[in-house]
Simulated assay, not measured.
Amino acid sequence: MVRLTDAIKESLAATKIVFFATASRNNVPNAVPIGAFKIVDDETLLISDQYFNKTLANIKENPNVAISYWGEKGGYQIKGTVTLHTSDEIFRQDVAWMKELRPQLVPKSAVVMKITGVYILKPGPDAGKKII
Score class of each variant (00 low, 15 high):
2 V>L: 13
3 R>L: 12
5 T>M: 02
5 T>D: 03
8 I>G: 00
8 I>T: 10
9 K>Y: 01
10 E>I: 08
11 S>E: 05
12 L>D: 02
12 L>N: 06
14 A>E: 12
15 T>P: 04
16 K>G: 11
17 I>H: 05
17 I>C: 00
18 V>T: 09
18 V>E: 04
20 F>R: 00
22 T>W: 01
26 N>E: 11
26 N>G: 01
28 V>H: 09
28 V>L: 12
28 V>S: 09
30 N>I: 03
31 A>C: 11
31 A>R: 01
36 A>V: 00
36 A>E: 12
38 K>P: 04
39 I>S: 07
40 V>T: 02
41 D>Q: 03
42 D>T: 01
43 E>G: 02
45 L>C: 05
47 I>M: 15
48 S>I: 12
48 S>P: 00
49 D>A: 07
49 D>G: 04
49 D>Q: 08
50 Q>R: 15
51 Y>P: 00
52 F>R: 04
53 N>V: 15
55 T>V: 04
57 A>L: 11
58 N>Y: 13
58 N>S: 10
59 I>H: 05
59 I>Y: 06
61 E>K: 08
61 E>M: 10
61 E>Q: 15
62 N>W: 05
63 P>M: 03
63 P>Y: 10
65 V>H: 09
65 V>T: 12
65 V>N: 09
67 I>R: 02
68 S>L: 13
70 W>E: 08
71 G>C: 04
73 K>T: 02
75 G>N: 06
78 I>S: 00
78 I>M: 00
79 K>H: 06
82 V>E: 09
87 S>I: 02
90 I>Q: 06
91 F>K: 05
94 D>G: 07
94 D>T: 15
96 A>K: 12
97 W>M: 13
101 L>W: 11
103 P>T: 05
103 P>G: 05
106 V>Q: 14
106 V>R: 14
108 K>Y: 03
111 V>S: 10
111 V>C: 11
114 K>I: 06
116 T>F: 01
117 G>H: 03
117 G>Y: 02
118 V>Y: 01
119 Y>N: 10
122 K>I: 04
124 G>C: 10
125 P>G: 09
128 G>I: 04
129 K>G: 06
129 K>N: 06
129 K>S: 06
130 K>A: 13
131 I>Q: 09
